[in-house]
């Protein structure tokens, strides 16, 4: 590949007290690609997202953005680079309406006063290009469904024209139809040339939309796979750390059945 990766992480370490959450983690994401980040509970997926988004900066390691070395120590630094994050809990203000949430912290002003008209116009335009349907953009988001809230959160992250989106478990709390909506949205993001880092527990989702799968295990890299050429079993075994012996294979198999 000729162009440098959108984001490249080298040797990332992160420690919370006595817990080594991330150790020597490497990751590359290119524009127009969906990279799925998978791993068991406590593998360090969410920590890695926090590192990239600047919420919890890394203790050590190098971050490269479009080929040049950068420091991400605060959320706005990540945002200024063009990294947008949708956290698992969505981080929406239930009492604000869709427009208010979308523009929170970057309100458009006209003579120093909030320009609600312009913000509403941009909101409707954005929702339309993403083919998202809302009952009304002036309702508090508390009254929206889980899938609608997820799409609001993703739309919000798109407002800053980011190059890279981090989606932390976007489908975890959703029903089948809503999950499909969100996955459609992820595919649209790729078509529009965004890089996407998708964190998921759901192998079905990952297989459906991801190009690459990065596996974390106990805070370390445990494989980087091409979705099209890798079998389900291989991924599962690298998630669980199963090596090639009968007992662990059986465990991995059972896990797969569960999933």
């Amino acid at each position: 590949m000729s162009a440098p990766p959108l984001l490249a992480l080298h040797g990332i370490f992160k420690r919370f007290g006595a817990v080594q959450a991330l150790a020597d983690v490497e990751l590359e994401i290119h524009a127009g690609e969906v990279v799925a980040l998978v791993g068991d509970n406590g593998a360090g997926k969410s920590t890695l997202v926090k590192v990239i988004s600047g919420v919890a900066p890394a203790d050590a390691g190098a971050v490269e953005w479009e080929g040049r070395s950068v420091q991400i120590t605060r959320p706005h630094e990540a945002r200024d680079l063009g990294i947008a994050t949708v956290f698992q809990d969505l981080a929406l203000c239930d009492n604000l309406d869709v427009v208010g949430n979308l523009f929170l912290g970057r309100e458009i002003r006209r003579f120093g006063v909030l320009d609600e008209v312009e913000m509403e116009r941009l909101t409707l335009g954005l929702l339309d290009t993403l083919a998202i349907r809302m009952p009304s953009v002036r309702l508090p988001v508390a009254s929206l469904s889980g899938g609608q809230r997820q799409t609001v959160a993703i739309s919000r992250s798109l407002l800053g024209e980011p190059k890279l989106l981090l989606l932390d478990e976007p489908t975890a709390a959703l029903g089948i139809e809503q999950t499909a909506q969100v996955l459609d949205l992820v595919e649209q993001l790729r078509e529009r040339g965004h890089g996407v880092l998708l964190i998921s527990h759901n192998m079905g989702d990952v297989k459906a939309v991801a190009d690459w799968i990065a596996v974390l295990r106990l805070g370390r890299n445990n494989g980087f796979f091409d979705v099209t050429t890798t079998s389900h079993e291989q991924i599962i075994s690298s998630i669980t750390g199963a090596t090639d012996n009968a007992v662990t294979r059986r465990r991995a198999y059972e896990r797969e059945v569960e999933l």
Partner: peptide
């Protein structure tokens, strides 16, 4: 509405 959201948004 949500202190955590406000903080993450950079307020």
């Amino acid at each position: 509405g949500s202190v955590e959201t406000a903080r993450r948004t950079g307020l």
